[in-house]
Design a protein around this nucleic acid. Structure first.
Length: 284
DNA sequence: TTGGCAACAATGGAACCG
DNA sequence: CGGTTCCATTGTTGCCAA
């Protein structure tokens, strides 16, 4: 138990025990589940102990911990818990764990309740072993759960973005803001000021405007594209950094909203990156 | 358009680093 | 000693190249 993986195969694990009975888990298993075994052969004939180990013991260890189905998972609680998680990196990616993640989390709780506390590494391995042997309908169940979790999160995020911290008024049936979930939210959170090229194009547009040129998008985009492709690497990387920075800032703001902090909500959009502008801009 | 690959979601202890 | 990165896991996603 001391080292690493208790769910590992006979080959790599049992070799560290010259006497199989030194493995206390294994010994317990033999005494309680197998009952009749020949300890002499066990210690002297590896093939005998291997059979007992691989065919029964691992199975026993795993089955011992299989969570009951269906799980009593409250989607709302689940989302709340994740929201209270202190180390959130990206609000738009929160609550996007997959079915397996939900499964593992439930397993974790399930085990804690029964007083078992595996280190995370081992828990992941156990979860994997269990997951692999779960029937399709169980996996589907968890998939649906993970999707509903995601949905609820997006719904909250959507309300947040639309309404700020105000709770939505009951009869504010502003057309389709109910169905704004997934795609729009994803777009909004993903947009986050745009990627490096979009920022570049925006700056270019401002620059041109200051010079008295007012290009329509259809002209601006190809021009920006052309110029962008000619930009030296450092300009591109600077813009990339800018976009990441902006994204981070917006994420912070959203977090503040989420946790009901004060929103000194001036949008941080004033990018003073004029010096990033290329020195050469040829206008045709 | 598609297929492959890397990042990423959660998690808490281990390992690592200055 | 404190803060950061790594680990173990699966399924989904987004991006890049052909």
């Amino acid at each position: 138990m001391e080292d690493g993986n208790i769910f590992i195969s006979y080959e790599s694990k049992m070799k560290s025990f010259e006497d199989p009975l030194q493995n206390t888990f294994f010994k317990y298993h033999l005494n309680h589940n197998i009952k009749s075994y020949d300890s002499d052969i066990l210690c002297n004939d590896p093939s005998y102990s291997e059979i007992l180990y691989d065919d029964d013991y691992i199975n026993y260890l795993v089955e011992l911990h299989r969570p009951i189905f269906p799980p009593d998972i409250n989607v709302e609680e689940f989302v709340n818990e994740n929201e209270n998680n202190k180390k959130i990196k990206d609000m738009s990616k929160m609550n996007r764990g997959n079915s397996f993640m939900v499964y593992r989390k439930y397993l974790h709780k399930h085990l804690q309740i029964s007083g078992v506390n595996f280190p995370m590494k081992q828990l992941s391995q156990l979860a994997s072993a269990l997951w692999k042997s779960e029937p399709e309908n169980v996996k589907d169940h968890y998939k649906v759960l993970s999707e509903r979790i995601q949905e609820l999160h997006y719904e909250r995020l959507g309300n947040l973005i639309i309404n700020g911290k105000r709770k939505k008024s009951p009869n504010d049936d502003d057309d389709d803001n109910e169905k704004m979930s997934h795609k729009k939210i994803k777009d909004m959170t993903k947009k986050n000021g745009g990627n490096s090229f979009i920022i570049f194009r925006k700056k270019l547009n401002e620059f041109l405007k200051s010079k008295g040129f007012n290009l329509p998008m259809q002209k601006l985009s190809p021009l920006a594209s052309d110029l962008w492709s000619k930009q030296p690497e450092y300009v591109k990387s600077q813009h990339k950094e800018l976009s990441e920075q902006t994204k981070k800032l917006l994420n912070e703001q959203m977090k503040n909203l989420y946790y009901g902090q004060d929103d000194n909500g001036s949008f941080v959009n004033n990018i003073q990156s004029d010096q990033l502008m290329p020195t050469y801009i040829e206008l045709e």
